[in-house]
Design a protein around this nucleic acid. Sequence first.
DNA 1: ACAAAAGTGTTCCTTCTACACCCATGC
DNA 2: GCATGGGTGTAGAAGGAACACTTTTGT
Lengths: 224, 224
Amino acid sequence: MTIDRAAVTVDLVLLTIRQGSLQVLLVRRGIPPYEGRWALPGGFVLPDEDLDEAARRELREETGLDPQAGHLEQLATYGTPGRDPRGRVVTVAYLALLPDLPSPVAGSDASAASWRPADQAGLAFDHDRILADGVERARSKLEYTPLASAFCAPEFTVADLRAVYETVWQTTLDPRNFHRKVTSAEGFVEATGNTVSRERGRPAQLFRRGPATLLHPPLLRPAR
Amino acid sequence: MTIDRAAVTVDLVLLTIRQGSLQVLLVRRGIPPYEGRWALPGGFVLPDEDLDEAARRELREETGLDPQAGHLEQLATYGTPGRDPRGRVVTVAYLALLPDLPSPVAGSDASAASWRPADQAGLAFDHDRILADGVERARSKLEYTPLASAFCAPEFTVADLRAVYETVWQTTLDPRNFHRKVTSAEGFVEATGNTVSRERGRPAQLFRRGPATLLHPPLLRPAR
DNA sequence: ACAAAAGTGTTCCTTCTACACCCATGC
DNA sequence: GCATGGGTGTAGAAGGAACACTTTTGT
């Protein structure tokens, strides 16, 4: 039996919300193939490294961020022959939902990295497809998990959370009903007791993530 | 840079409903490691083969079944170092939901294959974990997709479909409300016009799969 | 006739939706 | 005071759960 061996990489779909839009971290390729094109950050899995570990390492390298701060999960695996012209490369894609980073992107490979709108097209390799799959996964995850808070700072207001939903889903939600749903859903958020005043209007309560891992009931996006 | 190359395999979680229980197709290993233990069927991805293609090929080899008949999707990828004592093996697991096969399992490697209850434990490699992930995925897919019909023959009754839900979720559902929900959900099922009489009672209408790919509204499993 | 399964109708209750209304702040 | 965003109350609509009841078969 001839066993084909493949190079195994992890590619990251790092999503955040910046300047009111859903953005993804991309790196500009400095070498062929696809030289000069934008691509998802990623790299080879090390010889004695677990896949999840490799994804966490890449996340740290690209963003300088503690993987604890956001949310990281396996997305899907892509291995079509010819997807990388250099040979057989199987990539395990990971999806991360991250708060807007206070510090600029730092790290070894990050010189040519920048946040770009997530509706980007024309990426290197099959990264258009991977990005689209990641965005769709993020959209549906907001429905039945409390992961929207992964896009927020450790303390956030209900309005912050609503902005996440509105940005990712590209809809508008009723602020009053949203408030009720979020605060009454078991374990979604916990009040910290603090408040903030922003610009104008009554100060808002601050919350942190609750312990729930699933939303009961789910928060369904409006039927388009 | 030293690039680690890994053997890439696909492993299949083939689920069906037989004799009133959720069952999974397992093969008994004839060689070390884990000789004599039950394992998920699977095999190496061929040099010029796409991952999905490899999964479809394995499905045909193990069951003799046209992949069109059921449902096949990528589940997740497992690559922990040491998961296979023979070396670095990354496996892309696929989940299939299949109708109860009229023909016995046939195919090249299938001599030692058999259907076993899906709550099985003590499998080779990390297959306990993969199987558990597959079963959980199947459970939640029934909620918001019409895939329950993938467990049924091309023509089925509402009671057949309800049996799928009750078996996979391990609950009982009200036959009357279930009937209404299924027949009123847009695109879930389509009446064929035929009926069948089974054992006793009024004959039931036969349906085939509808065109819908998502259920609106979802059919939520009762809160534990 | 009787049992059993298919299928319909109805009632009650929970949840969603829309929106009126009050609260607390900056200017 | 007035504009602005935070937060509560409530009425109507929609959907789910429970169950009485009718239909159509096998024995």
